[in-house]
Design a protein around this nucleic acid. Structure first.
Lengths: 155, 155
DNA sequence: GAGGTTCTACTCGGATAGTTAGTGTCCGAGTCGCCATGG
DNA sequence: CCATGGCGACTCGGACACTAACTATCCGAGTAGAACCTC
């Protein structure tokens, strides 16, 4: 069970974009330079966030990415699932209905206890990430952070 | 983020082994036939559980695998982490200390909020799985299940 | 001097190779049970 | 009939190919801005 490395990238990028003034944008190249990341691949991940409706992209000079919503309306779960996909890590393939010990479909109307427990654990994970928004993240940063970010990112 | 397919296998296998009488064992071939799984690869995964101390293996005729502890002392978390490894899905590589916006090590003594939140979510996931033991699973099965499992698995 | 037009440079977007982790498979070492044999 | 030695078959354990996903990269389509020319 491993999240893509780019998960960390987009989380930091989204946090940085949340510190810009409304209307300002940062290009993929600027974000890549800010964190020393491979620009083309980062751009690909930012595209995924754009498709998910988290970021808005504008082309042309002075273009780039910005948050599509207010920071309080963007949760960490949305960001993580935008880049990693919304699939659960545990996939029940109903092996209890296969082989010598196969149960009848009639006995398997309820989801098996193992799959249910794994799903509950995943739900707990999602719930925790859904409870933290970018606004919550920004509150924990030092007071001078947004100005510094703006200066070094797009200044 | 994806768990290996074999996670489902070992969860079901451990549940089945928990239904055997004390002292009885089931071989990898028997378990593979019971669930219609590729026997050699299943054996590889059961080895991992043996190394983790969850199963005990005996060789020779009438040998096979059995639980190394009482079902109430085997949690789903232990099984999952035995086959998937104990690593967290999110790995913080401290990109905040790289690039143009690099923070000084002095400013990074506390773990960053993003990594902390991801770790908390993972902790919630682990806690849920650690709270369910094989004994809890067995209680939810129909009353006739253990006898049926024994009959079809090693009978 | 003002407006329109053209041009340039910069942006994102999708299609294309390389590398690691998981998947599937095989063969060898060790051990217990069975059978033949001898007493 | 019983004990013993040998044999055989079955078990797990580790080492070897194959596939899919993530990682990394490139080039093309579109657009905003600026410069230039004309009126």
């Amino acid at each position: 069970m491993k999240l893509p490395t780019s998960t960390e990238w987009v989380l930091h990028c989204a946090t940085s974009l949340a510190q810009l003034r409304p209307g300002d944008t940062a290009s993929a190249a600027q974000l890549a330079a800010y964190f020393d990341l491979p620009a083309p691949y980062l751009a690909k991940q930012l595209q995924a966030l754009t498709r998910a409706g988290i970021l808005a992209a504008t082309t042309g000079p002075r273009g780039g990415f910005r948050l599509a919503r207010a920071p309080k309306d963007v949760t960490m779960l949305q960001i993580v699932e935008a880049v990693d996909g919304p699939v659960a890590p545990y996939e029940c393939r109903e092996i209890r209905q296969q082989g010598r010990g196969a149960l009848s479909p009639q006995e398997c109307q309820e989801t098996c206890v193992l799959a249910r427990t794994m799903a509950e654990a995943h739900a707990a994970w999602r719930a925790h990430l859904a409870g933290v928004s970018l606004a919550d993240i920004l509150e924990e940063l030092p007071s001078g952070a947004p100005a510094r970010t703006r200066r070094l990112l797009i200044g």
